[in-house]
Amino acid sequence: MFKEFFDFKKLKKEWIYFGAITFVLVLVSLYCAHAWGYNKASILLDDKKITAYEINEEIESLKNDLAVIEEKVADAGEEQSNKQAELSQMNSEYEEVTSIINQRDDVQKDYDSLLQQVEEKDEEIKALNQHISDKQKELDKITKGIVIKKKEPRVLVAGVFIAGKDIPPGRYKVEPNRGSGNYFVNGGAKVNIILGKGDDFYLPEYVFELDEGDEIEATLSVKYILVE
């Protein structure tokens, strides 16, 4: 009986070992089946049957593509910043050019205004020059004393004459007609000169107002030119 118990105990021990070995084998089989199944497992993607391994490769490829896209996005963002800076610079230059154009318009207006003022001054200067010319003629008339009338001169020989009888009264320029000699009006009280030419002591001409009744006495032939 003791022997039978020992055999039963031994048999039980062998079953435990067998069970343990069987369990280990099942676990190994399950692991291998899982690994083989994971690598061999497949799904439908876009109507294409692919394995998990291929899925991992696709994921890695997509990650790489995403990294490239992110890099391009970063580059695009930097380029956008540069373009924005260029745009800001162009806006600044545009404002500067616009300011210059506005200043040019203001300068043109000032130029046109000054040009108009210059033209007005030119007209004013012309009028003043004409006025000066007129005044100069008046001055010449006063300083030179005469403007010769368009009338034939009158010649009186040496002798004594009465204004209003022998010669009309008026303003005359007297010149020696021939030679030289004394010329008196009213006994020398009004005119007392020596008419003649070619000597510093002689007067080549003389202007005075001959009034009605004046008495002329001349020792030479005298030319009378009526002036105003």
Rank of each mutant, 00 (worst) to 15 (best):
R104Q: 13
E93T: 03
I148F: 12
V155E: 07
Q117W: 01
K141S: 15
N39K: 14
E86M: 03
A41G: 15
S92F: 02
D106Y: 05
D134S: 13
A41Y: 08
E96K: 11
S113V: 06
V147G: 08
E70W: 01
K83W: 12
E152A: 13
W36Y: 10
E60Q: 11
E93R: 14
E120D: 15
S81M: 06
K141T: 02
Y94F: 11
S81Y: 06
N39I: 03
Y53T: 06
Q84G: 02
E96R: 09
E60A: 15
E120H: 04
V107E: 07
V68N: 13
K144C: 02
K48V: 12
I55H: 07
S133G: 12
E54I: 00
E78V: 07
L139W: 12
D134W: 01
D105G: 04
D47Q: 14
S81T: 12
A76F: 09
E119Y: 03
Q136D: 15
N82I: 12
E60G: 09
K137R: 13
I69P: 00
A41H: 11
L87N: 06
L128V: 02
E95P: 01
I132L: 15
I43N: 03
D75S: 07
S133V: 05
I146K: 12
L87D: 03
S92Q: 13
I101H: 01
R154I: 14
A85F: 06
Q84T: 06
K63H: 10
A74G: 03
P153C: 04
Y94K: 12
Y38T: 10
N39P: 00
Q117H: 10
Q136S: 11
E60T: 15
N56G: 05
V155T: 13
V97I: 12
T98C: 05
L128Y: 07
D46K: 09
Q117I: 08
E93W: 06
D47E: 13
E57G: 02
Y94A: 14
L128E: 10
I100Y: 10
K121M: 06
K149A: 08
E138V: 04
E124M: 03
K83C: 03
N129K: 09
Q136E: 14
S81I: 08
N56L: 12
Q80E: 08
E60H: 08
A67V: 01
L156Y: 04
Q89A: 13
K40Q: 13
E57P: 00
K137E: 14
T143N: 13
N39A: 05
K72E: 06
E86Q: 11
G77H: 04
S42E: 12
N129T: 04
E71H: 10
V155G: 00
A67I: 01
I100H: 08
I69E: 11
I100M: 04
